[in-house]
């Protein structure tokens, strides 16, 4: 490279006062000559370039929004809360896919039951368990690898837990409602699981002020299954439709579920300050090392 642009030439070019031919010539040259690029850079005003860099690095560093984050944003959730929620293990696409699969299986089973003349109660029994699974996975060391590091941060843990649980509840209930439309039950009967689901969720959330969400969810799940099983066993020789026999799905049972939901919510609100202390983290000494 024997020809290089002079400072004058470069400055005239930058001012826009260089004729087209010589501009074109310089521009072609710049594609191949690092020294002249450097000279042009030195002659360029730095403010604009620095501002551009600040915008650029901001975009470069801005994490890609996951689908979940985008959806949350659309629903008016603050950007940083959406980020916190999107990191929830039970809101990940893989988890939601699993949820959909489970619902699909439950629907198929109910259709099968209906085909052989039995009432498809199985769907109504499984569905309230789904948000419980989600909540258990949403907060705690079991599925959250960064749990320990997160515990030491100042973001109120009860709030984080509540946000995540509500997000899980909404997604579970939403998907379950959609699945309900395929269940061969008349009218609102297909939604008889809703109040039990809300009651079980509220119970889990309330119990989380005493024990970790995983244990709380297990207790609620066991409670629900026990209630249904007891009901089934007690009435197995009774005549009539399963929906009529099982007290959990009769109006009385539904009202009880509603009451449980309200009471449990109140309990959580009252005990919310105890949530953090209830998250006893480790119990396994082998986990500890030195």
């Amino acid at each position: 490279m024997t020809w290089h642009a002079t400072t004058d030439l470069i400055e005239t070019y930058l001012d826009g006062r260089l004729d087209a031919a010589r501009s074109g010539s310089l521009e072609q040259h710049l594609l191949a000559c690092d020294d002249c690029r450097h000279a042009l850079a030195s002659a360029s005003p730095s403010d604009e370039l620095d501002a551009l860099w600040a915008d650029l690095i901001d975009s470069v560093d801005r994490p890609r929004h996951s689908l979940v984050e985008w959806l949350l944003h659309r629903f008016g959730v603050h950007a940083h809360v959406a980020r916190l929620l999107a990191a929830t293990p039970s809101l990940r696409v893989s988890w939601l896919a699993g949820l959909i699969l489970t619902l699909a299986v439950a629907v198929v089973l109910s259709i099968a039951a209906d085909d052989v003349g039995r009432t498809p109660v199985i769907f109504l029994v499984i569905t309230p368990l789904l948000p419980l699974l989600g909540i258990a996975a949403a907060y705690g060391p079991a599925l959250d690898p960064a749990f320990e590091i997160s515990r030491a941060t100042s973001y109120p843990s009860a709030r984080l837990f509540l946000y995540r649980s509500m997000a899980v509840l909404v997604s579970s209930v939403g998907l379950s409602l959609a699945a309900s439309t395929f269940v061969p039950l008349a009218g609102w009967d297909a939604a008889l699981w809703l109040l039990p689901a809300l009651a079980a969720t509220a119970t889990t959330v309330a119990l989380s002020t005493w024990v970790a969400p995983l244990r709380a969810a297990t207790i609620s799940a066991v409670g629900w299954v026990t209630a249904v099983s007891a009901s089934v066993i007690a009435t197995r020789t009774d005549p009539g439709d399963a929906l009529d026999r099982l007290v959990v799905f009769r109006p009385t049972g539904q009202v009880v579920a509603l009451i449980v939901m309200v009471v449990a919510t109140a309990v959580f609100v009252v005990r919310i300050d105890r949530f953090d202390a209830a998250q006893v983290y480790l119990s396994d000494p082998l986990d500890i090392g030195a």
Partner: peptide, 17 residues
């Protein structure tokens, strides 16, 4: 950053033209 420092100035100028 290094690439930016080398190439952004002339790119800006050329596009401004």
């Amino acid at each position: 950053r290094e690439l930016y420092e080398r190439h952004a100035p002339w790119l800006v100028a050329r596009l401004r033209h």
